Amino acid sequence: MRIVIADDHAVVRSGFSMILNYQEDMEVVATAADGIEAHLMVAKYKPDILLLDLSMPPGESGLIATGKINEDFPNTKILVLTMYEDQEYMFHVLKSGASGYILKNAPDEELLSAIRTIYEGGTYIHPKMATSLVKEFIKKDQALVDHDPFHVLSKRELEILPLVAKGYGNKDIAEKLFISVKTVEAHKAKIMEKLDLKSRPELVEYALKKKLLDF
């Protein structure tokens, strides 16, 4: 696999080049000192992998370069190198198109494994940072659950909501479900409150979006 290394320290570029060129399946075809130069080297050599330092003062940083290079050269997989165990940085570069995020002080074996992983189409995240990613996923998943009508509403409210959305009046709903009109009104108020809806059109739109009309 053909590799470009971008880092603002010459000694780091030299060290990584030595490690990678020693591998039978890897070849460093070029190096760069900042994001702009990295973009030029990727354009020239069309590498399989770009090892990109996150912070490269005073030149263009890896944060900016990741998005640009991914957009212009989507076939080049980007592995971000950094000293920062920072969740925000990690999320930013992954969203910008990086295929991996690894700490510079990681063992050589881990770096080689990360390169091979993303070359084969996978994603690599340093184990310490993977924990943050999992926690964020769980947090977002819980947020989805909190807005799930089957989680928020009671069984009776789930019966009433689609009927209201279909245009049934309180009396019709009461007769269908064998409950009083006042009970229907109370449940409707609770539904609107729980789902933060202000009007019937909003309720109809919600029911359609959540596919509740056939419930």
Rank of each mutant, 00 (worst) to 15 (best):
M1D: 04
V4T: 03
D8V: 09
M18K: 13
I19K: 05
I19E: 04
L20N: 05
N21A: 12
Y22A: 15
E27W: 07
A38K: 03
A43K: 15
Y45T: 12
D48W: 00
L51D: 09
E60S: 03
G62I: 07
L63G: 01
L63D: 00
I64Y: 06
N70K: 06
D72C: 13
P74K: 04
N75L: 10
L79K: 02
V80G: 04
M83I: 15
E85G: 10
D86I: 08
D86K: 11
D86M: 09
H92Y: 15
G97K: 12
A106S: 14
P107Q: 07
L112Y: 00
S113M: 01
I125Q: 08
H126L: 04
P127Y: 03
A130G: 07
F137H: 10
I138P: 00
K139E: 11
V145K: 13
H147F: 02
F150S: 14
E159Q: 15
I160F: 01
L161P: 10
P162G: 04
P162I: 05
A165G: 09
G167P: 11
G169L: 07
N170A: 14
L177K: 10
I179T: 07
S180W: 06
K182S: 15
T183Y: 11
H187E: 15
I191S: 07
M192I: 10
P201V: 09
L203A: 02
K211P: 00
